[in-house]
């Protein structure tokens, strides 16, 4: 019991995720700044932002539905943290593996977007409503390619369990190279999920202020921000478990260090992509997802099906 609580709440659960999440945000911001030839924030900046927000007043708009408005950040945080229980960290084994957990993780990672939508919609601000509708529209565009590319990898491993997928690929590391298209597609889909440039349409600052988060302030906003940080880590961990399953058999310490490196590598990749492109419009984003990403993910499935027959 105490052991389980330790695992869930402290390591590698909530506390570890929060700290690592804020650190990942720091890496993201610092790298973004350095790529733009700027100095960037000091290492404690995301933490300081979080603490500052905690100290601020929570303002709930008069017209908002207070219950939903207040509960949504907690919901989002719980969903992302839960998802991490099923992602392998330092070994091929996740905390509580079961058959079909890859589907559960993907769905748990969808919940934050839904909570952003609900929170934004029930705050009744115009900007928040436009932002939340944009967010939900975007969800339908990137979610399918993401599911397809991750399930393509699962298809080749012939299992619906993340633990078994990781085990399969660490036994046959050369097979991961077949999934390179899937990796590229899911990186792009992850950008959409995290609402970063070029897919930061739901919170495009110059158009709709802060999108769904326009009315959020204080603690509630702090939890939303923490959710996005944790979502970034969990998403990156998911991709590294499926597409970069190297060195997981070398023992917990090496595996853990490799995990950190892999996650930061993906975070860095996200920062690089958001440095070099402009934000797309929602119609362009949907076109891009359905015209390029979905067919590519489909191609990945076909490749893996053929491989399965051949190998």
């Amino acid at each position: 019991m105490i052991h389980s609580l330790f695992l869930l709440l402290i390591f590698p659960g909530f506390i570890f995720l929060s700290i690592f999440g804020t650190y990942a945000e720091f890496v993201d911001r610092k790298l973004y700044a350095r790529l733009q030839n700027r100095m960037g924030p000091p290492w404690f900046q995301p933490l300081a932002d979080f603490i500052k927000l905690l100290a601020k007043e929570d303002v709930v708009p008069e017209c908002a539905v207070p219950g939903i408005f207040r509960i949504m950040p907690i919901f989002a945080l719980a969903a992302t943290t839960t998802a991490f229980c099923y992602v392998p960290v330092w070994s091929t084994h996740s905390l509580y593996p079961f058959s079909g957990d890859v589907i559960v993780v993907l769905y748990l990672l969808t919940i934050p977007t839904i909570t952003f939508f609900l929170g934004g919609w029930y705050s009744t601000s115009l900007f928040a409503r436009i932002g939340s509708v944009r967010g939900i529209t975007q969800l339908f565009a990137y979610e399918v390619p993401l599911f397809m590319s991750i399930l393509a990898a699962a298809l080749l491993a012939n299992t619906w369990s993340l633990t078994d997928i990781t085990l399969f690929y660490s036994r046959h590391p050369s097979y991961t190279f077949f999934n390179i298209i899937g990796f590229a597609v899911s990186i792009l889909a992850l950008i959409g999920k995290l609402e970063k440039t070029p897919f930061d349409i739901p919170e495009a600052e110059t158009e709709i202020v802060a999108g769904s988060f326009t009315e959020y302030s204080g603690r509630l906003f702090a939890f939303f921000r923490l959710t996005i940080d944790i979502e970034m880590v969990v998403g990156a961990a998911l991709l590294s478990a499926v597409f970069l399953p190297f060195g997981l058999t070398l023992g917990p310490i090496v595996g853990f260090i490799l995990f950190i490196i892999k996650v930061l590598f993906i975070v860095g990749l996200l920062a690089l992509i958001r440095t070099i492109v402009a934000r797309l419009r929602i119609d362009q984003m949907i076109n891009f997802c359905w015209k390029f990403m979905a067919p590519l993910a489909l191609l990945q499935i076909i490749i893996n099906l053929i491989l399965k027959g051949v190998l």
Partner: peptide
């Protein structure tokens, strides 16, 4: 213009 379309790198470089 870069900032308005979410291309902050252009903003940072031109202002530099």
């Amino acid at each position: 213009a870069g900032h308005e379309i979410g291309f902050d790198t252009l903003l940072m470089y031109t202002w530099r």
